[in-house]
Amino acid sequence: MKNIPLVRPNAILMLFICAVITLITDNQLFAQEYKIKTIVIDAGHGGKDGSTRGLYSTEKDVALKTALRLGKLIQDNMKDVKVIFTRSDDTFIPLYERIKIANNAKADIFISIHCNDMPVKATRYISGYTKNKKGKKVPVYKTRYAKSTSTRGVETFVSGFGRVDEQDEAIKRENASIFLEDNYKENYDGFNPDDPESAIILSLMKNTFRTQSLKLAKMIQDEYVSVGRVNRGVQEKSLAVLARAGMPAILTEIGFISNPDEENYMNSEEGQAEITNCIYKAILAYKQSVEI
Rank of each mutant, 00 (worst) to 15 (best):
S150D: 11
V227Q: 07
Y141K: 00
E169L: 09
V227E: 08
L64I: 01
A122V: 03
Q288A: 08
N132Q: 11
D194E: 15
K287Y: 06
K142C: 09
Y129L: 07
D108Y: 01
I283W: 08
F157C: 08
D165H: 09
V20H: 10
G190R: 00
S127N: 12
A105N: 09
G128L: 07
V138S: 12
H45Y: 06
I39K: 05
T58A: 14
P196F: 07
I93K: 02
K60F: 06
A105I: 07
N175D: 07
K206R: 15
F256D: 07
I275V: 13
I275N: 01
S159H: 08
P260K: 09
Y286E: 04
K142S: 13
F209I: 03
K134R: 14
G246I: 00
I17N: 15
V227W: 03
E269C: 06
I113H: 01
I283E: 06
I74L: 06
Q272V: 06
N10L: 12
I101W: 05
S203E: 05
I292E: 12
A282C: 11
K237E: 14
D189T: 12
F92A: 05
P248D: 06
K72R: 15
Q75T: 11
Y145E: 05
V20G: 09
D189M: 11
S177Q: 09
T22I: 12
